[in-house]
Design a protein around this nucleic acid. Structure first.
Lengths: 118, 118
DNA sequence: GTGCATTCCAAAGACATTCTAGGTATCATC
DNA sequence: GATGATACCTAGAATGTCTTTGGAATGCAC
């Protein structure tokens, strides 16, 4: 795919966000394989976010180990073999927690950035 | 001292944000010493953000090495010796860059989290 | 003037997460 | 049957933070 290599600027800021992004992707789309998740995040964010495979797959394994996502080998429309992931009930709860955590973080940093109003 | 030790929940999400917070603190307050920066961030964020000293001082050294901040030993009102930091011109530019980077990140992740509107 | 909390700085180690870079295999197209 | 996109996986290095630990100066209580 000619992964153009304009060095990923986000790297640092993405820390701790990957799980949230993956869980949310599954929550929005139901069942996906790893590669599809990466593409989804990249497209929906208008190319602002790029999830490297070397980050994604370890993350998926980690999430599965924690029983937050469930995997199953299957075949897509193309007949190609792929590992399909979906959210587990625990994963759904975790997603909610991560989302509110993210919102709190953004809010807190906002307080530092903007002179407090009101 | 009782610095209650409820294990810092933010740790991961703070990644890559520390520099921004430090630079912004100096930009808002002019001249500060390390400890004061930590307290400022904690207070202004309503205790949501806690910057550990073990993270802060290495960060300050890093920023100084990059000529983004300038340091000077001095004495505060209490007469206590402390190292006072202030933003350099380069630091101010960097702060602007980091701020817009942060905003772009938040926006991008927002696109993943919220079903795109309009 | 001793003891203790607070302020202030710093180094060393562990730890988690990501990236880089490599590998394998399938399928379609030419 | 070579090429390129798809799809998965892992090892190793780099990065940045946290934890731990320590030292030193100040202010207060007694």
């Amino acid at each position: 795919m000619s992964r153009d290599k304009k060095t990923n600027e986000n790297n640092a800021l993405l820390q701790g966000t990957l799980d949230l992004l993956v869980l949310k992707s599954l929550s929005r789309n139901g069942v996906m394989h790893g590669y599809g998740i990466a593409r989804f995040i990249q497209q929906i964010s208008r190319e602002a976010l790029r999830v490297e495979e070397g980050s994604l797959y370890p993350a998926l394994h980690r999430l599965e180990l924690e029983d937050l996502i469930l995997s199953e080998w299957g075949h897509g429309a193309s007949g190609r073999r792929a590992k399909y992931y979906r959210l587990s009930p625990r994963g759904r709860k975790r997603l909610e927690a991560e989302e509110s955590r993210w919102r709190r973080m953004v809010e807190a940093i906002g307080l530092v950035l903007e002179p407090a109003e009101g």
